[in-house]
Design a protein around this nucleic acid. Structure first.
Lengths: 250, 250
DNA sequence: GGCGAATCTTGTCAACGGCAAGATATGGTC
DNA sequence: GACCATATCTTGCCGTTGACAAGATTCGCC
């Protein structure tokens, strides 16, 4: 049935995705060519198009696969915030190709239903873990609540509906329209209201930001020496340093 | 002198960079075409090559410009950690095109001297600001230091300046073999040693990670609802929530 | 055994990146 | 003012790529 030779490959779609991951790990997503992909898989130059439609379709499939894998990895991390963060960084390092594609939405159709679903699964896993936060420093309400937002008028108005803030593409992913960039179709400052940035929402955002930033900087090779060669452990140290209020020795 | 019409453009290099920024803001770096660039600037398709050599050269120039602008923005932020973080996020949002290129090293020659220098300037500005950290929670030494790993001497730290970790690349950025993906030739665990992740080094890393992660997630459109439409303010809330230990009202 | 549909191939086209060779303007020198 | 080395920009070309169309082969199913 699933022979790998002959006119019908058997599982060409999966094979192409695997080859794509390898190629991306070698040279990055930008350098990925559908024809080179077909060449490596031993099929004709037009074979990939049948399974993915176009280049964006290939990246879309990779993104879905990536968000699903991430959700799985986070679900299996144990529920502790610390382990969750380490799992996140670990995923980024181990599945570098997927991770790079996932957070480069101009490469794929970020608004596709399957992408949204997979991303939501990963997001849920993340939120669930952050909910177990031992007890975030519970920052006392800050002295000056806020200088009065007026300070940053620049980015304020822009598009109210938010969906097409960034690049207004048409229907192609890389063209504008795709870039969700929602985030803007929501109330002005959510920070002060219940569920705002001062509550659990803020915890999630802070935790996600720090692990995502660490992973991204690591992958980009932007981190200076002295971090060590084990990103997972380094991340653990950093997360602990920031998030865990007291040693709680017992 | 700098006439903009005629056989000689006057300042084509700058014009091309400006047009590139606009194009990238519209459709992302991946979609940028040298020919389209030339078309928009009203010059022949080979004109850009004279100034930048190739596509990677163009991105290299953008990266240098970006790191310089970032350094400038950070220097002008005032020295307070909070303002520094907000300035970082603000830069990412306002100079989206530059920021995206800067942290996508497979697009350009990340090991070029000018890039190293500009990146170092930005890094210095960042470190300088973090040094003013009011007094990071001053985490008491953590209970369990770490399961071990201290034994591995690993290869002595090669780049002390830490600028070229990521993709060593020969001279082209995107071809294979470029992606060093090394990360394995640095001292094993730097966390426990002086200057390790438990000291100021850790503060810098944590602060940088959180603002970088926030900015990246924002740009990728990955942030869920509730964040508001002003990334700078949202970042301020998140940073303060994590970093500032006590109100310190005085 | 046969047929519709899925899978894969071959052929083609416009666009791109990169290179080479030529055209045109600029600035300095006598 | 004439001259020339050089920087700047153009034209022309080649191999590769993404996308599409049309055809060939095989599979699932009745």
């Amino acid at each position: 049935m699933t022979g790998t030779r002959g006119y019908h490959h058997g599982d060409l779609r999966r094979a192409l995705l695997d080859v794509a991951v390898t190629a991306i790990e070698e040279s990055g997503p930008a350098a990925l060519s559908l024809r080179e992909l077909a060449r490596r898989a031993g099929v004709s130059h037009a074979a990939p198009a049948h399974h993915f439609g176009d280049r964006a379709g290939l990246f879309t499939a990779l993104a879905v696969q990536g968000f699903d894998s991430l959700a799985e990895a986070l679900d299996g991390a144990g529920g502790e915030l610390l382990d969750l963060g380490v799992a996140y960084v670990d995923f980024a390092v181990r599945h570098r190709a997927h991770f790079e594609v996932m957070f480069q939405p101009d490469l794929y159709r970020a608004d596709a239903a399957e992408v949204r679903a997979a991303r939501e699964r990963a997001g849920a896993a993340l939120r669930a873990g952050v909910a177990t936060l031992p007890a975030l420093p519970a920052q006392p309400t800050l002295p000056e609540s806020r200088p009065g937002t007026a300070a940053h008028p620049g980015t304020a108005d822009r598009s109210a509906d938010g969906a097409d803030r960034p690049r207004d593409a048409a229907d192609r992913p890389r063209d504008a329209a795709d870039r969700p960039r929602d985030a803007a179709d929501r109330p002005r400052d959510a920070a002060d209201r219940p569920g705002g940035l001062d509550g659990p929402q803020g915890d999630v955002l802070a935790a996600w930001s720090i692990v995502h930033g660490f992973a991204t900087l690591w992958l980009a090779g932007a981190l200076p020496a002295g971090v060590g060669d084990d990103p997972g452990e380094a991340a653990r140290t950093v997360i602990r340093r920031v998030f865990i209020p007291a040693p709680d020795p017992n």
